[in-house]
Design a protein around this nucleic acid. Sequence first.
DNA 1: ACGATGGTAGTACGGCCGTGTCACAACCGT
DNA 2: ACGGTTGTGACACGGCCGTACTACCATCGT
Lengths: 197, 197
Amino acid sequence: MPRLIDHDHRRAELAEAVWRIIARDGLEAVSVRHVAAEAGVSAGSLRHVLPTKADLLTAAMELVVERAAARFRARADRPVPDRAAVLALLTELLPLDEERSLELRTHLALVLGSPGHPELVRLRATLDDALRQGCRAALDLAAAAGLLRPDLDLDLEALRLAVVVDGLALHLLGPGADLEPTAAEAVLDGHLAALGP
Amino acid sequence: MPRLIDHDHRRAELAEAVWRIIARDGLEAVSVRHVAAEAGVSAGSLRHVLPTKADLLTAAMELVVERAAARFRARADRPVPDRAAVLALLTELLPLDEERSLELRTHLALVLGSPGHPELVRLRATLDDALRQGCRAALDLAAAAGLLRPDLDLDLEALRLAVVVDGLALHLLGPGADLEPTAAEAVLDGHLAALGP
DNA sequence: ACGATGGTAGTACGGCCGTGTCACAACCGT
DNA sequence: ACGGTTGTGACACGGCCGTACTACCATCGT
């Protein structure tokens, strides 16, 4: 078989296989064999790329961070002048499609499901920090567009916004989710309105 | 050994053992043997009370729902006249001590960690519903005390408040938590203030 | 063209898992 | 006092786990 494969690409495929298993069968179903089967490779082959299970979980989490960062970067680079665009930027942070739902489920399942894994804890902190900074950036844009009352404590409001976004995300995740996407958008819209003059 | 033991009491002990294992070692470490050891009984003995692992997880989740409901009932029964009391009622919903942290970790780990378990999905819906009703009740009390603008959509605000509470709870949960309890209370206080006239 | 290189797949091993079974010990009603 | 009931603990079983090892093979550099 081919002498050289793209390791990064293979790692991403395996990480996405982990995502799907976590979303479909839960964290407990994540085993080397299941992931290999889900990704369509043999278990022995998987071990050449990710030698241990901990590496597997770390790779899954790293890809979450990477994808989320890339998505936000793509959004934030564009000039964002009006209210609808700010709302769209925030909506981007919600798990409203399959990929983002998979990512968030993975993120939460790993963070809550395996404490004592230092790498995962570090990556969680990275992600939380990015969320807060993203909310802060969105607020700065909104402020520049004159959408915000001038007397707001932007640091506190960024934190509050991040909390709202994460809370919405949590309630959007099925199964057993109790929130419709439209309701989530309504909450976000109402929150932004409450920050206005 | 004694012919009659209190089954409910034993179930609660075992459920709390599950909580501790989830918080300390993660969901993957929850096995019949580990739980039995944590609770100080033999595995065979455990099986007389909770025959299968699914029963074990269900019992753990049921105790979460039960304790949370009892705690809220104890708070809500008291007359709640002023702003500080409303804030205290909401703070009650946050994982600011060991027991509530254990409960929330269990709740989230189970909901996110084992999809396809119908009983857990049902219990999650129960809990989410209770949270929303609790927030609605708190808002009603605040409104009766004249702490709210009269033009608010209380249903939407209850949802937003529930989202804030859950978001705060999520960020308060260690390890890797990025939120201090005082910051969480500040967010809650700011949120309540933003609802005022 | 042909070894060297590096990915692949199959197998093996020790360990823990969930669950079933069963003999035994402690308490109850009679 | 004693037989029945009920909780207990120990073991057995089949299965899946993570990991290690080792032939095999397609490609690449020479």
